[in-house]
């Protein structure tokens, strides 16, 4: 456990020094504060808009951090050859991988908390109120980041950061629209394409499940069962992705 924590601590330290993080945080702050401008053109809806855009910013910028830093986590260590002296230590390779993952999740936890803190303060400053559903929505966004980061890590141990980032980005896009894979026009019925799309539907994580933005903006509660189900779904998916990453990395020549 100490070995995993040592790697996690270092990954955290390294990510804190990554300029990409600050560029993304700056853009996130701009979009949160800029959301008021959109509120002006929708009279009486400004708090709703600020909440909605704040959650969207937290989600999008968290995902960008997960993709940009996540897909280079292992690759960078191989490329810069820092991995040589680490993998040759008496530790399991999966311990290194898990340490990298936890380090980046630590960063994402801090990013999520900071962005939520800033947006919550902004909503209160504008005279709005925050219901528990708002924070539940943030929790599910973080849960989605767990999954995206695990997927980025898997690709980082298989391919280059650019290709990895492109693949994760497309999975992210399709993950928000998995319904289209099943909702096909009649001419698709019985075709090979239908089967392929059906497989894609089950293989690509349904990221729409993690989206409680509309409920949070309007203060509508969701059932505890639904939240528990989504949390379990996210954890199961993440565990499978981490397992695949560990298997891919175990046999990898570095």
């Amino acid at each position: 456990m100490n070995r995993i924590l040592a790697v996690a601590k270092n990954t955290f330290r390294e990510a804190v020094r990554d300029k990409v993080l600050y560029v993304l945080l700056f853009l996130a702050a701009v979009s949160i504060f800029g959301s008021k401008a959109l509120g002006w053109i929708s009279i009486g809806q400004d708090i709703k808009i600020v909440k909605d855009i704040s959650l969207a910013s937290t989600s999008i910028f968290g995902v960008l951090v997960a993709i940009f830093i996540g897909t280079s986590l292992v690759y960078k260590e191989i490329d810069k050859r820092t991995l040589y002296t680490i993998i040759s230590q008496p530790m399991h390779r999966w311990e290194f991988l898990l340490g990298k993952y936890l380090g980046l999740m630590g960063i994402l936890a801090v990013v999520t908390v900071v962005m939520t803190g800033v947006s919550a303060a902004y909503v209160l400053l504008l005279g709005g109120s925050l219901e528990p559903i708002y924070f539940l929505a943030v929790l599910l966004i973080f849960w989605k980041l767990l999954l995206i980061t695990a997927f980025s890590l898997l690709l980082s141990s298989l391919t280059s950061p650019i290709l990895g980032a492109i693949i994760v980005f497309f999975v992210y896009l399709f993950g928000h629209a998995t319904g289209v894979f099943l909702d096909l026009p009649p001419q698709f019925h019985g075709t090979f394409a239908e089967k392929v799309l059906k497989v894609a539907y089950y293989a690509i994580p349904n990221l729409g499940n993690f989206d409680l933005r509309a409920e949070a903006a309007n203060g509508v509660a969701v059932s505890g069962v639904y939240v528990a189900w989504v949390l379990a779904y996210g954890l199961a998916y993440t565990a499978v992705l981490l397992l695949l990453a560990a298997l891919a990395f175990e046999e990898k020549d570095v």
Binding site: N2, R3, L5, A6, V7, N10, R13, E14, R17, K80, R81, T82, Y84, T85, I86, S88, Q89, P90, M91
Partner: peptide, 30 residues
Amino acid sequence: RRLIGYLPEQPYFYEYLTPRETLDFYGQLQ
């Protein structure tokens, strides 16, 4: 691996760490 000490050709370490932190990190990995 516990019995082997390895020095790669032109070794690379985390650039943002000091020698003391580096040795501490590898001590933890051991």
